[in-house]
Design a protein around this nucleic acid. Structure first.
Length: 267
DNA sequence: TCCTATGTTGTATG
DNA sequence: ACATACAACATAGG
């Protein structure tokens, strides 16, 4: 489920645990979400540490603890964070449980495409600081997009929008939403976008990110019917702007929904 | 049984 | 070396 705004929403679920100590850590040592993670170190460092702050960027979350300890979580396809009671009994998909006096902070992910990373250090880990500049930052410019597209000329724009190194936090549904608003066909080759289309793409990237953070990111509210989102998986779904039937087809390796009346292929 | 799934990554091919 | 395509990862639900 999680793209930019969902990740931000889940991050905040652990806020009640801020400024409080971790009394114990329960985890499934062989779960794939810990691939490449030093579990022994994680346990040793986090037990007794205090959760100081957290941040989300792209689809990543970073939790900072006392003792220069950093916990990174990626939610993959099905991950989520929850807040449970202190004596909550973990279920099968609850791979990481941080026990506090009043709560348990849980990371669960039944499909295990998610990932836990742990490190020590005075600064945030390198994987975190090297995340691309946010779409809502002033470094996300029309020029930056144009340059990126110039190196991705033969790929369909849908596939390019999923590339985290330029569009951090964009996932399958946000990419479809952006292209639909910008009236760009998902199969249009990245190299064939006109300057006008690139400008529209830039504008709608920012609009969708801002609106998604304001709604989903705050309350997990369903996007309104005026968005493509509520219609894209419906059979017989219709475009909220044109009323025409929507199409669903694989583009760039992912199921993609678009409005053929609005998003035309090439000119 | 078969297909799908809001993600990333390694590998093969061009 | 770089861009692109696609299988693989692991599990549940329709």
């Amino acid at each position: 489920m999680p793209e930019l705004a969902e990740v931000e929403f889940f991050r905040k679920r652990w806020d009640p645990g801020l400024k409080k100590k971790i009394d114990d850590v329960l985890l499934h040592p062989s779960a794939a979400v810990f691939r490449g993670c030093d579990i022994a170190l994680l346990k040793r460092e986090l037990i007794g540490a205090t959760l100081l702050s957290s941040e989300a960027a792209a689809k990543q979350m970073l939790f900072r603890f006392s003792g220069e300890a950093w916990l990174g979580i990626h939610l993959g396809m099905t991950g989520e964070l929850t807040l449970q009671s202190a004596n909550y009994e973990p279920r099968k998909p609850d791979h990481l449980v941080l026990r506090q006096r009043e709560h348990s902070l849980i990371f669960s992910d039944h499909r295990m495409f998610g990932r836990v990373q742990f490190s020590n250090g005075s600064d945030a880990p390198e994987w975190w600081t090297s995340i691309a500049p946010a779409i809502l930052s002033d470094k996300f410019t029309v020029t930056a997009i144009a340059e990126f597209l110039r190196r991705r000329t033969r790929a369909p724009i849908k596939a390019v929008l999923l590339m985290q190194e330029r569009f951090p936090g964009i996932g399958n549904w946000m990419a479809d939403e952006i292209l639909w608003r910008a009236a760009i066909h998902p199969k249009q080759l990245a190299g064939s976008l006109t300057p006008t289309q690139i400008k529209a793409l830039h504008k709608e990237c920012r609009w969708v990110c801002r609106q998604a953070l304001k709604t989903i990111g705050e309350t997990f509210a369903h996007p309104p019917k005026s968005w493509l989102f509520p219609h894209r998986w419906e059979n017989g779904g219709r475009c909220p702007k044109t009323g025409a039937a929507l199409i669903r087809e694989e583009v760039g390796g992912r199921t993609t929904c678009w409005s053929p009346a609005r998003q035309k292929l090439n000119s």
